[in-house]
Amino acid sequence: MSVLDLPRLWRPATHQALFRRILDVAARPGQIADLGDLLDGRPAALAALATFCDNTQTLADLTGTLSATDFAFLDVGKATVDKAGFILSVGTAAPDFTPRLGTLDTPEDGATLVIMVDSLTEGAALTLTGPGINGTATLAPKGLAPDWLTARARWCADFPMGVDLVLADATRLTVIPRTTKIGA
C-alpha cells in the first residue's frame, strides 16, 4: 500500500503467490514448492501459516519459535494442541498429542499440521500413493521422526477424518493430505 510498506511476507500479493504454490503441491503430493524468492529469509513454515491464518483461526505453536511480532502479524488465536486448527511443530520432536481430526460430517475441521524438517530431499525415501499422484511419488524428508508417520497413519485411519501435513524446510514445502498412503 502507499502509506506504509509491509514486510514482503505479509503483503497480499505474497499471500496470493504463496497460496498458488502451496495449492499446486497440495494437489500433487510428493512435489516440492520452492518459496525462496518470496520469503526474505523468513522460514517457509511461517509463510504457510501467513497464507492461511487470521483472527478466525487458532494456532498451537509447539516450537516456541514464533515471536510476539509474528503472532501479531498472523493475527491468530492461540489454542491448545488438541483444539487448534493449525499446529506448528518440529519434525525431530515425536508427537505426544492428538490433534483435531474433524468429524465424519465435518472432516474439514481436521487440523493442518505444519512440521519443520531439516530438509525435504536428503532423508530416507518414502513412497507416496493416492489422489494427486500419477502412480507413485517419492519424498525424502530429513529430520522427521518415524513416530510422526505412525501417528499420522493412526490419525488418518478413518477417512474422511484426519489431518493434513505441511512439511517445510528452510525455503521449501510439501503437502501430505490425509488421502496419501505412505510406504517405506
Binding site: 502451496i22 495449492l23 497440495a26 494437489a27 492461511f52 472432516p107 474439514e108 481436521g110 493442518t112 489422489p131 494427486g132 474422511p160 493434513d164 503437502v175 493430505p177 490425509r178 488421502t179
Partner: peptide, 8 residues
C-alpha cells in the same frame, strides 16, 4: 480450497 483438495 486447501481442505477441499485434501479431502477430494
Amino acid at each position: 480450497i486447501f481442505k477441499a483438495v485434501c479431502i477430494p
